[in-house]
Nucleic acid binder design. Structure first.
Length: 313
RNA sequence: CGCGGGGUAGAGCAGUGGUAGCUCGCCAGGCUCAUAACCUGGAGGCCGUGGGUUCAAGUCCCACCCCCGCAA
């Protein structure tokens, strides 16, 4: 009977925790350790909170490492686990070269775009923002430079008209299957013919900022607002500042304005027509399903309309 | 002690010591070819909880609970 291969898993957010869970009980390999970011302040009271991956790993009784820096100490700690493979899913730190040489079968990352497009921190959101119809995920061997290694597995996912939640959900579903198979394959010695990334086609995307969610509805097109909504709804969401009410207003759920419903001429930024509440944009309108003024509880469209009328008159 | 907003009808809000109100929704009726529009009527409230001040508290004072925005 072969010895089980030894994997060290790197990851931090919820998404990574889901991948960890799906990689769990296997005959061919085991997760011998999990590396995640240290506990960080979170929530209104700023309590120190462990990462979702740490919580999941503890639940699964896997040893957890939370190095602040990937230094010599961390290197030593990982070497002691005698790893065969590193699997990285949204870890949040860049692995130095000396770490990449630790596992016998190498270090691999699953990235949620069709590399070399959208290298960096927000591939799913960026693809939606750009209005792409197709994205996907890539499993590649990690090199020192970010998201640039040779691609071993790649799969398309249709993203047209979908929200980030829906896309992530599919990425999770399909990606976990692919990653599982990949781990089995590579650890059993299967030969891959990896694709080198075409550097000329590479694009990159930055980490999202809170301010990316700010919109100016009457200066933007419906398409622009809707793409931002779909891309950013997990975080930071979309919001605008209203001079009339003096508050910031989040749009929690919006959709296309129903075509049968006339948009009254001369409508204000927020308007009501029939039973629906609308948001006027530069080239049309969107329906507000749910919104939330700063400091208030979330409101369905008609409640938001009531609030708006009372604040603006 | 991180900063701030709030808790009054099903929902959204007004009400600064003296009869509990408005808008939306809901129910009934009316108008109408018709309606999400309009008219009439109606139901629906321990005003977050506990104490205090007062002849009198939704309102002033104290404590507590809960919700939310920022921040991370």
């Amino acid at each position: 009977m072969d010895e089980k291969k030894r994997i060290i898993f790197f990851g931090t957010p919820d998404l990574a925790a889901d991948f960890l869970m799906k990689l769990m009980p296997r005959d061919s390999f085991e997760i011998v350790a999990v590396v995640t970011n240290p506990d960080a302040p979170s929530g209104r009271k700023q309590f120190l909170t462990p990462s979702p991956v740490k919580l999941k790993a503890e639940e699964l009784r896997i040893p957890v490492l939370t190095p602040e820096k990937l230094d010599a100490n961390a290197h030593e700690a990982l070497r002691n686990f005698d790893p065969d493979l590193f699997v990285v899913v949204s870890y949040g730190k860049i692995l130095p070269k000396s770490f990449l040489e630790l596992p016998k079968f190498g270090a691999f990352n699953i990235h949620f775009s069709l590399l070399p497009k959208y290298r960096g921190a927000s591939p799913v959101q960026s693809a939606i923002l750009n209005g792409d119809d197709i994205s996907g995920f890539s499993i590649f061997q990690i090199k020192e430079s970010l998201d640039s290694g040779d691609i071993f597995v790649e799969k398309d996912i249709e993203i047209m008209g979908k929200t980030a939640i829906e896309v992530f959900s599919e990425m999770k579903e399909e990606g976990a299957k692919a990653l599982l198979r990949f781990c089995d394959d590579i650890l059993s010695g299967k030969k891959f013919i990896p694709d080198r990334q075409n550097e000329g086609e590479a694009t990159s995307c930055k980490k999202l900022k809170k301010s990316d969610g700010e919109i100016s509805p009457d200066e933007e097109t419906m398409g622009s607002v809707l793409r931002k909504y779909r891309a950013l709804l997990i975080w930071p969401g979309i919001f605008f500042h209203s001079k009339k009410t003096g508050t910031r207003i989040k749009l929690l759920e919006i959709k296309d304005w129903s075509p049968g419903n006339p948009i009254p001429p001369g409508s204000e930024l927020i308007f009501k027509s029939g039973g629906d509440v609308g948001l006027r944009t530069a080239d049309g309108a969107l329906e507000i399903i749910e919104a939330q003024p700063e400091g208030k509880m979330r409101m369905i469209g008609t409640a938001f309309w009531n609030w708006w009328e009372q604040k603006t008159h």
